[in-house]
Amino acid sequence: MSTIEVSNVMSQPEPSQIVSAKRRVSSALDKIFRKKSSIGFSSTAFTSSIPHTHIDALTDDDLLTGHSNGSDSGPDDDAMTLWSSMEGNTYIHSMFGNQPHLNNLSPELVWVFSYKRKFGCLGDASDVMYIGDGRSLVVDMIGNRVLHFDKRGISSIAYSTEDMIEPWAVAVNTEDVIHVTARKTKCVTRFLKNGESITPIKNVNFTTPSGVAIGKNDQMFVSDVTTNLLTAHETDGTFISTIGSSMSPIQHLDRPRYVTVDNSNNIIVSDSGNHSIKVFDSEGNFVHKIGERGKGEGQLKFPYGVCTDTSDNIIVADHYNDRVSFFSKSGQFIRHLVTSLDGLNHPQGVYLTSNFRLLVTHGGLKAHEVLVYDLRSSQLSEKEVFV
């Protein structure tokens, strides 16, 4: 059995059984992180690496059973190996050259990690971002750090700075500079992937910065849940303008938690307090509103994370409705991608990879897990998927 068939093994009748099986594997992550020594904070960013664990001797069946044909490999190896390269299976694009429509896809849970509140795992995963080549960044708001997972998942790095207190969201610009909003210290922290610290962006009237996104020419957009503002900044943090108008009832923001920028440089913000998504064009002009308070199709209840696909369609973490919803770029509701029936509970950060792996941070009062769903259904024919 190959690693790509993990989702078939986990296809149990009850979503709780699916999540439980994944948790048994992901619990091995705790052992890996406990090998680390305690880490102290300094005035510059630090990175802390876990030594690589060798997995070459494992068979594919070993990855699911926790056995290793008599080798020294153990559950640490098994858990990490299941985190395969996010772009390792790209037959959809190479065979058809077309993007499948998400309204024809079905989710399968293929991976869960970091669910126990122990060192190295997630206290409250407020955001997640895929950065290519199988690597992802997860913001741990309670842990005051950003965790990095590499393409094979056999080592991890923790990023933090003395200014990174209550980090919330993450974005990376074209220069590979990692930007993380820090709510407690009222700034946007910045550092390189090697851990080198860059001067944080402060003193620009941030009160509680939450969402952050990078747009054209590396312009930065930041939402603030206290001032209820969405602002645009130059690369160095210099203030450019405020997006939207507080004087307009339809444009006014209330607790804007997350923001993203699509391929057309439209700015999309989750207007949580107004239970909607607001879309602005590249010049900051209001385009349209998506959603209203409720539980019905197309309705939202405190939307959190937001992202887009390559066609600028919009994906929203509908926090208190326990689902992730999919809208066209014009705002038309298409479908719910994953719901509580798929094991989802209070989703926060969301990210969609180019090969339709959906990363979602979720949990009860705190988001202790990152779920990875494969939105491509093995049950659909090619004709059904590629319409």
Rank of each mutant, 00 (worst) to 15 (best):
S2P: 15
I4S: 13
E5R: 13
E5L: 14
S7M: 11
N8G: 04
R23W: 08
S27L: 14
D30P: 04
K36L: 10
S42R: 11
S43D: 10
T44L: 13
T53M: 11
T53A: 05
I55Y: 15
H67A: 05
N69A: 10
G74L: 04
P75Q: 06
E87G: 01
Y91V: 00
I92F: 12
N98P: 01
L105V: 10
V110C: 07
K116W: 00
G123W: 06
D124K: 03
V128R: 06
G132Y: 07
G132H: 06
G132Q: 14
G134P: 03
R135P: 02
V138R: 00
G143L: 12
R145L: 13
V146W: 13
H148D: 01
H148E: 07
S155P: 05
Y159Q: 10
P167G: 02
P167W: 07
W168S: 15
D176V: 03
V180L: 05
A182Q: 07
A182M: 12
R183G: 13
T185E: 12
C187Y: 00
V188G: 08
G195H: 01
P200Y: 14
P200A: 13
K202Q: 15
V204R: 10
T208I: 11
P209R: 00
V212D: 01
I214S: 02
K216E: 08
M220Y: 03
S223K: 07
S223C: 12
D224F: 14
L229W: 02
L230S: 04
T235K: 14
T235R: 14
G237H: 04
T238Q: 09
I240G: 05
S245Y: 12
S248K: 12
S248G: 01
Q251A: 09
H252N: 11
T260D: 08
S270N: 07
G273W: 06
N274G: 03
N274E: 15
N274R: 14
H275M: 01
K278D: 09
E283W: 07
K289R: 10
I290D: 01
G291T: 02
K295R: 03
K295T: 09
L300G: 02
K301G: 02
G305K: 04
G305R: 03
V306F: 09
C307Y: 04
D309K: 11
V324S: 00
F327Q: 00
G331V: 09
H336P: 02
V338D: 00
T339A: 00
L341T: 06
H346A: 14
H346K: 11
S354W: 02
N355V: 13
N355A: 06
Y373P: 03
Q379L: 07
S381N: 09
E382P: 11
F386D: 04
